[in-house]
């Protein structure tokens, strides 16, 4: 098990390293475009050459990558040309805001999706299953930007009970969190619920569950004691694999509601060609993704003894 974990950790480091290399190569391999992005399109050839020379861009690409990487590891994430501040100064605040959004969303999505999935997978093709499955399909079909519009229309314009922006200008406000979280929950829960349902259906068809039912055990007990534990392995993986999905989803919601999180930074960085900011956002996003995958692996190991003892 230790061997498995250290192997996974090694692969994880390799992935982060390789992705950081790709991002760096895409953004900084061609030094002329870097100069244009930093100095603007109206700079002269001379100014660009001077700037490149001054900032060490005329060195070998691989040397520059090594320097960037060592700076990055030591906590120097470069200078944001958009915000005119070092990236490290403001990035963590934004990341924290996104963590709050994603955390609350997951805290609602997971119990909701599991309940939906278990209830509908428990009795396949029953009326309850049909209705719940249909709700889940609708949830996965409505794009976030559409639910942003629909929910704003209902709660902000028609009922007027929620604020239409979540910029939190006057300090942190729970009320401003409701709409972004609602949109993300609707966007996310259908998929997990469907995986839970599929897994539950499969477990309900196994012979040990049938035996339990046939020997006259109450149905509730069959589900909660016998079926549930095995049915949860697939959804647990799915829940953790949802994080990259959630991170993508967060971008749209943050833009739509002017929420100050990393999705906001990422789009801002992309639109204004802010190289250091894009690099930071991408590397952090990749680290979040691979870490959640590692956690998923570890949890699966505990749920499934066949993996634990092999």
């Amino acid at each position: 098990m230790l061997l498995f974990l250290s192997k996974r950790l090694g692969l994880l480091l390799l992935t982060v390293l390789a992705t950081s290399f790709i991002v760096f190569a895409v953004l900084e391999l061609d030094v002329d475009t870097v100069a244009v992005k930093v100095l603007g399109g109206y700079s002269t050839q001379e100014q660009r050459a001077l700037w490149l020379e001054e900032n060490g861009y005329n060195r070998l690409f691989i040397t520059r990558y090594a320097e960037w990487l060592s700076n990055f590891v030591q906590g120097d994430f470069g200078y944001s040309t958009r915000f005119k501040r070092p990236v490290g100064d403001f990035f963590w605040n934004y990341l924290g805001m996104t963590a709050i959004l994603a955390g609350i969303t997951m805290a609602i999505v997971v119990p909701l999706a599991l309940t939906f999935g278990i209830l509908s997978g428990m009795k396949e093709t029953s009326l309850l299953d049909r209705v719940l499955s249909f709700i889940c399909i609708i949830s996965t079909s409505v794009p976030e930007f559409a639910s942003v519009i629909l929910f704003s229309f209902i709660f902000v314009f028609t009922l007027g009970i929620l604020p239409g922006t979540s910029s939190m200008i006057q300090g942190f406000s729970w009320k401003e969190l409701v709409l972004p979280v609602l949109v993300l929950v609707v966007y996310d829960f259908g998929y997990i619920a469907r995986i839970t349902r599929a897994s539950m259906v499969e477990v309900m068809h196994t012979s040990y569950v049938r035996t339990a039912i046939l020997k006259g055990m109450p149905f509730k007990r069959v589900v909660t004691v016998h079926a549930l534990r095995n049915a949860l392995i697939a959804p647990v993986t799915a829940i953790f694999l949802q994080f990259p999905w959630l991170l993508s989803g967060v971008v749209v919601v943050e833009i739509a509601f002017a929420y100050k999180g990393i999705g906001h930074l990422l789009l801002e960085g992309a639109l204004y060609h802010d190289i250091s900011l894009i690099e930071m956002c991408t590397v952090v996003a990749v680290i979040v993704v691979v870490l959640t995958q590692l956690i998923a692996d570890i949890i699966c190991m505990f749920l499934n003894p066949r993996i634990r003892f092999s």
Partner: peptide
């Protein structure tokens, strides 16, 4: 494949489209 999949998709789209 795993390398590409470890980017959140929208991040990938943004970088490619902006580039």
């Amino acid at each position: 494949a795993n390398l590409i999949l470890s980017f959140p998709v929208l991040v990938l789209y943004l970088i490619i489209i902006v580039y």
